[in-house]
Amino acid sequence: MAYFSQQLINGLALGSIYGLIAIGYTMVYGIIGMINFAHGDIYMLGAFHSLILFLILGSLGVTWVPLAILLVLVFAMVLTAMYGWAVERVAYRPLRGSTRIAPLISAIGMSILLQNYVLLLQGARGKPLHGVVTGSIPLFEQGGFVVQIGYMQILIILVTIVLMAGFTWLITRTTLGRAQRACEQDRRMAALLGVNIDRTISMTFVIGASLAAVAGLMVTLYYGIIDFYIGFVAGIKAFTAAVLGGIGSLPGAMLGGMLIGLIEAFWSAYFTVEYKDVAAFSVLVLVLIFRPTGLLGKPDVEKV
C-alpha cells in the first residue's frame, strides 16, 4: 500500500507534465486537424530556455528560489511561444487547405530541423542543473517504507492545476476561446462571421507552446538534466496521451496525460523499467481498438 501510494504520487507528477504537453497537441489537432509533430521539440526548446534563464538569473544574483522560478516561467513561456508562432507561420500556414499529409511531413521536417538546431547550438551533451527545489514531506510510514511527496512534485501538480484552471477559463469565457471553439467547429463559417482565422490559429500555437514551455521548465527542475533529444519521446507520449483522452478534448488531454504517467510509473515499479514505453503504447492500441475516439472524445461522424 505504501509503495503503491508512492508510485501514485510519482505517476501524477509525471502525468501532469505529459498533460501539459498533450494540451498543445490536442488544441492544434482540434482546430486545424493536423498532428503538430514539432510540438515535442517546442517543449525541448522550453526546457533549454528555462535552463539558460536560470543561469542568467543566477549570475544576476537572483537567488530567492520562488522569484527565480516565477521569472524563468514567464520569460521561458514568452521565448518558447515565439517558436510556436514562428513554426506555424513558416511551416504550416502556407500549407493550410492542402492535403492532409503535407503539413505532417512539414512538421516532421520542422522537428528534425529544431532538434539539429539545438544540437548545433548547444552541443550533444546532457545539460545538468543541480537541485533548485529539493526536499520532501514524509506523508506516512508503513512497514518501514516512508511515503513522501517532494516539494518539486507539489510544485508540478500545483502549477498544472493553476494553469488548467486558467486555461479552462480562457477557452470557455474569453473572446479568444470563443473564436477558437468556433474555428474548431467550422472554420469557414467562423471566418464569415468575422473571426480572424489566422490570428486565432496563431494564438492556439502560442498557447500550446507556452504550456509546453512550462512542462519543459518542470522537467528541467524535476530530473535536473536535459538534452536536445528529450522532445521526441516526450512528444510521442504526450500525443499518445492526447489520443487516449480523446483528441480535440482538453480535459481528455489532461486525463490522458495523467493515465500515461500513472501507467508508466506503475509499470516501472511493478514490472520492468525497460518496457515502460511499450506499456504506454499498448494501452494506446487497446484504447483505439475498443474505443477509437478516446476516453472523452466525441464520436466522429463519417460523411460522404
Binding site: A91, T99, A102, Q115, N116, L120
Partner: peptide, 21 residues
C-alpha cells in the same frame, strides 16, 4: 554532418511549402 541533418529538415519543410503535392 551536423549541418547535414539541419539542412535535411529545412529541405523537407521548404519542399513541402513550395510544392505541397
Amino acid at each position: 554532418k551536423d549541418y547535414r541533418m539541419l539542412a535535411f529538415g529545412l529541405g523537407m519543410v521548404l519542399i513541402m511549402v513550395w510544392r505541397p503535392g
